[in-house]
Nucleic acid binder design. Structure first.
Lengths: 371, 371
DNA sequence: ATAAATTTGTGCGTATGTATC
DNA sequence: GGATACATACGCACAAATTTA
């Protein structure tokens, strides 16, 4: 039996198959089809609705109904679940859980599953993870780059994401060569206000500890130096200590002990730390040496993590947007996905990278230098 | 945005997933659904129509609408990607990142993706998460129960996991009625050794703070009481404070202040805490009151989290196997999956629940009572 | 065995909301 | 801002298939 909406379906299908409607071409509007076939709008919508679920057409509110490009259908069929991958260097440490949580919150609200991968800050693992993601059907990827300051051997995999049309964005840092969309904070400015805070308190002999195998550390260090120059405070090269991930446990503690053992005139009166984690570690060393914080020495952390509020001396530190970064990353990746499936041209330039401004959080670990 | 027909869809989906509608069972007629949801027939038909094309339901003219048998669909789709879901109460807080990391490590080594879900310790969210997992193809599920001490309204969903032949295990706690495989620690014994440690140091007036909306807290409290009885130390009922998740911020601090304000003879000399997080919070209160730990009062935590080593007084606490629990859970779920696909009979009884023994970690927050 | 009631299928008219151009 | 197009929602009528009295 031929129902009216089936007649309409057949007629539209014919036009598609004989080439009257080309892929991505707009077909007649619903009211036009009403007149054309002498049926009600309800019937037209029944026909079109069926053909949309069958993959012949797609609709765009406010614009029209279009003929689908059936050559690409194979890619869309396989995946009816919505999945986002998040790659971070570490899963369980420090501020990463907060970032992940922020992203998970937004993504799950929008019906996406979140799959987690960690690289352990290791390029080889990053490679394995990227291969895994490329061989499955993820709708988007959020990446925290591994060792972002070092040239990355896995750039091909990221380019491959692009050619497979899988949107990805980077958080905290980015890989220079790729220029991806990224959600970061202004780490240089963060390092700057961190150090300038100490300078404004009268400190002139400030140790800076920075991890320099990721971009964040390099930028924070740059800010540290800039604060000195801007305020015309001479820099003692011995006061600048850079370390890499695998050295953090030992080198920083050793260097601090060395610097503390100096003769009186040169003694440092303040320390700027790459992050709170390090600050807390160094705080233990200072306690051991019977140095009071902030009485004898001021200490400024970075990230405003839970660690900043946990010790007896609450840390002065720089705010890190943590879960907001996660949330923002989630929103941006959702925009990218939406944009991909919708109309391409107009909105492409509207999704932009985001840079958060750092803010100083003053607590009890820093104070005015005693003259 | 929630449209009316989407609300109806969700409600019907829930009834299918929680077992209210069994496969091939007739669901309410269109006119019944109209009354039930207070919507028009058009809306009901939109919802049902969608779910028919999605494979949840099928219709028979003159007879009714029926629940589809989804057990046979899954096999034909044959997902070749390997996915495990992990459900925890919180993602970013405290010891959970370590647990998740332990599981992720093992699972990713075995080629599985890990998808994360958090319930925020909320049964409603747990329900949504379980519905999501049931409507996709996960190979296994690791669950940290939400409010395990309270009867759980989502038991149907867990039973549905079983009928869909999806293995699941629970960590940290379990739901009494289900008797699932579980990876836990002996929390009663943990509470026991925690308190007995204080008793052995001569303390007799020991406050106990326990969160009692999960099983762990109830067991730890039981251990606290048992330690008193075993050592014939009388229990002052005022010294036992139980609180629930939503009270933790305020009630514990208030109660401690109240107990500290007592007359001299009754003054508590030690505190046993549900976990390190609470211990650190209380430590702040004690500092405020100018009480020295452990000089004036001893403090014992639980979990041996990073928090235990971060303050100036390193906490005496009870070891929690954190990442080992995650790893073990991963191994067990892999065994269950292997068993499911391989030979069934022989090995069924070889996969067993695991209970870890607690161990006391003595640091500086507890010491012998001054006579 | 037949008629009545129930349930889904098809179709029309109308109104309001929202996105796009 | 206004016109156009799709999205959601309500109400009504009749047809076809099935169940039930």
């Amino acid at each position: 039996m031929m129902t009216k909406y089936n007649t309409v379906k057949q007629a539209i299908k014919s036009k598609i198959l004989d080439g009257s409607y080309l892929p991505n071409e707009k077909i007649s509007s619903e009211s036009e089809l009403m007149k054309e076939f002498g049926v009600s709008r309800h019937t037209v919508r029944l026909a079109i609705g069926d053909m949309v679920t069958e993959g012949w057409l797609y609709r765009e509110q406010g614009s029209g109904t279009f003929c689908a490009d059936r050559t690409e259908i194979d890619q869309t069929i396989s995946n009816n679940s919505k999945d986002i991958a998040i790659i971070t260097t570490y899963i369980s440490d420090y501020i990463f859980p907060s970032i992940i949580r922020g992203a998970e919150e937004i993504l799950s609200k929008n019906g996406y599953n979140v799959s987690l991968f960690s690289t352990n800050n290791n390029h080889e693992t990053e490679k394995n993870v990227l291969e895994k993601i490329l061989s499955q059907n993820f709708d988007g990827v959020i990446v925290e780059p591994t060792k972002s300051a070092i040239s990355n051997p896995n750039i091909n995999y990221y380019l491959n994401l692009e050619s497979q049309n899988i949107p990805y964005i980077m958080i905290n840092a980015d890989y220079d060569a790729l220029e991806p969309l990224s959600i970061t904070m202004d780490d240089e400015k963060g390092g700057f206000i961190q150090t300038e805070h100490l300078i404004s308190l009268g400190h002139k002999n400030i140790i800076g500890f920075f991890k320099t195998d990721d971009i964040q550390g390099k930028k924070r260090m740059k800010g540290y130096l800039k604060a000195h120059r801007t305020n015309q405070v001479p820099i003692n090269p011995n006061n600048l200590v850079s370390y890499s991930t695998h050295e953090k446990a030992s080198k920083t503690v050793d260097e601090l002990k060395k610097l503390l053992a100096k003769s009186n005139g040169d003694k440092p009166t303040a320390i700027a730390c790459y992050n709170d984690e390090l600050a807390i570690e160094l705080l233990d060393v200072l306690r051991e040496k019977n140095l009071n914080v902030p009485g004898d020495i001021s200490l400024v952390g970075y990230d405003d993590s839970f660690l900043a509020k946990v010790s007896e001396v609450k840390l002065t530190t720089v705010e890190h947007p943590k879960s907001v970064i996660g949330q923002t990353a989630a929103k941006v990746i959702l925009d990218l996905i939406k944009e991909k499936s919708g109309n391409q041209k107009k909105s492409l330039d509207q999704v932009k990278s985001v840079v958060f401004e750092p803010k100083l959080v003053v607590r009890n670990s820093s104070k005015k230098l005693n003259p």
